[in-house]
């Protein structure tokens, strides 16, 4: 495998550290496992996942007359053999969904009972997250790459105990932690309100208060790394399609009307604190870079539903970003 970095540039006591960051994996096994591989392949010193770990849908695989039937992305799939079933389940996992093999009666019962469906969803979601965290330990521990994780607005509160129970990954939501003597990581998974009223959506007043409280704990702003799921408002990395009241995409002159979906509180906080780096996610289509004063803000974007991993790699000196790149694989 070709090396991304020159040996001469390897981090040392007076050199730089390398971060690899991703967000919005949304349960995609393929994207998560690629992220772990990328952390090793690119020689990262720290791996960061900036929220939205869990998937959004269950795909029922209905057992019927000796075969299985399912729908995925509007395509009807008929699975004749156990091997086909296993391949399909892997595909479902790679695109961030959870499979559930059941008979037609159970499928109907689940559809008619939202509470039961929710319980099943939580069970599947947390089971996959546990698998991920275990796998992260297996892959990253030998390379000595710590994994810093926060939940995002889509992540059900039930993931918190799962993250807390991890022996390797560390949930740093609402915390300021030291990566080394020069860099603090300031993390938060809460986001501004979205039209979907997700578990961790909050009004701007809440965001303002939490951001102020977290930023107030930073000892060395010049070397601080902000790690917040929600991007700052009115930036290139918070642009998403505007929605009508009935949640349809708004068009004007045949074009998707774009709007800002980031947090004004985070923006104001960054303008004041001026950390060296600010890592975000949340808006999948707003992959990119934005500068707020001296702060480099990054959103790696997300294409989890295609099993594609998107991440940012940052070479970080004590108070300066030496270099960065957005990768995709």
């Amino acid at each position: 495998m070709p090396s991304l970095f020159r040996r001469a540039d390897r981090p040392g006591p007076t050199g730089y550290i390398r971060l690899i960051q991703t967000a919005d994996l949304h349960g995609s096994n393929a994207a998560f496992r690629k992220f772990l591989a990328a952390a090793r392949q690119h020689g990262a010193n720290h791996a960061i996942i900036t929220g939205d770990l869990t998937g959004k849908a269950i795909v029922p695989i209905v057992r019927r007359n000796g075969h299985y039937e399912a729908w995925l992305f509007d395509n009807r799939e008929v699975l004749e053999t156990e091997a086909e079933l296993e391949r399909f389940r892997a595909r479902v996992g790679d695109v961030g969904m959870y499979d559930h093999v059941c008979d037609p009666e159970e499928a109907r019962a689940l559809a008619d009972d939202p509470a039961r469906l929710h319980d099943l969803f939580v069970e599947k979601m947390n089971a996959r997250l546990r698998e991920w965290l275990d796998r992260a330990g297996e892959v990253l521990a030998p390379a000595g790459i710590p994994l810093w994780v926060i939940p995002g607005n889509d992540d059900d509160p039930s993931v918190d105990p799962v993250l807390a129970a991890s022996e390797y990954a560390r949930n740093v939501d609402h915390q300021v932690v030291e990566l080394d003597e020069r860099h603090e990581l300031v993390s938060m998974g809460d986001t501004s309100m979205t039209p979907w009223a997700c578990p961790r959506d909050y009004p701007e007043e809440h965001m303002e208060r939490v951001v102020a409280e977290l930023f107030g704990r930073v000892k060395n702003p010049a070397g601080a790394i902000v790690n917040m799921h929600c991007p700052p408002r009115d930036t290139k990395i918070d642009q998403c399609p505007a929605l009508t009241k009935d949640l349809r995409i708004e068009y004007e002159a045949g074009q998707v009307l774009m709007t800002s979906a980031g947090s004004a509180a985070i923006r104001r906080g960054l303008e004041t604190l001026q950390p060296v780096l600010s890592l975000h996610g949340h808006i999948h289509e707003a992959r990119g870079v934005h500068r707020i004063g001296r702060t480099l803000c990054l959103n790696p974007g997300s294409e989890y539903a295609e099993g594609i991993m998107k991440a940012s790699i940052v070479n970080l000196e004590p108070t300066r970003v030496k270099g960065y790149i957005l990768i995709s694989g």
């Binding site: 070709p2 991304l4 020159r6 690629k34 772990l36 995709s328």
Partner: peptide, 20 residues
């Protein structure tokens, strides 16, 4: 330039990453 000044290889953007 990116390798010598920033320590990054722009080829990384295009590399395929096998899942771990």
């Amino acid at each position: 330039y990116r390798r010598s000044r920033e320590g990054i290889d722009i080829m990384a953007t295009f590399q395929e990453i096998p899942p771990a």
